[in-house]
Amino acid sequence: WGSLGHIAIAYIASNFVKENTEAYFQGLLGNDTEHYLAGVATWADSIRYTKWGRFSKNFHFIDAKDDPPTYCGVDFVRDCKEDGCVVSSLQNYTSQLLDSKLWPWQRNQAAKFVIHFVGDIHQPLHVENVAQGGNGIHVNWQGHEFNLHHVWDSSIAEKMLGGNRRKTYDNAFRWASDLTDEIKSGKYLTESASWIDGLLLDDPIATSMVWANESNAYVCSHVFPEGPTAIIGQELAGEYFEKAAPVIELQVAKAGYRLA
């Protein structure tokens, strides 16, 4: 996701964590305000292209080698590269968070990675191999050329919300409040309980593979409904947007609730 998605996910999580959890992570992250999760939600992206942070560049995705729209599915052994992927990273950084022998700075970084990667695994194109998660597919968006990955990361959500694009934190906060209401008493009320079924703290791979497979299924149904070649050069801000927007809302809501 772009900043808007990551920050919204963090604010949704802030709305559902227990008091004890809030105090625990405020301590670990050194931030006593309501922005303690939102303020670090994009940190992993900010270090990704720096020299020292380069080790983490492959941690944001898993390249599912499936065949959309005919066949979707993620296989951990087949798809997670030797130097890591979003699923192995969630395992690694969750276990670092649970290891009280590590230095506080290590656990602080682990928290920032977990907060970010729970978000990324819910973006369908972070769980897809085709054209590097859609980065190599040129499409049109409101008459301008973009790559498909960027459209799913940012453009669709930004169009949904409208308003001033520069006010990312305000927009994310507002979006998070709306989605929190939908989870607590709106359209997600009944299904949200099942979003956290079968969470296993001692088996982060199994847990995040459920999330990855769910996310990847949207690659077949909504990202490439007619296959990857049919979308090249298409204008996506119309009918395609109308179908994709509810998926993005749902995935952001789920990511926030599951992160909490």
């Binding site: 004890n20 969470l199 599951r258 992160l259 909490a260």
Partner: peptide, 20 residues
Amino acid sequence: AWLNLIADRMSGGEKDLGEL
């Protein structure tokens, strides 16, 4: 729910999903 589980484990508290 993931952060709740982590905080519970580290605080020696209960392992259920609490308020969620």
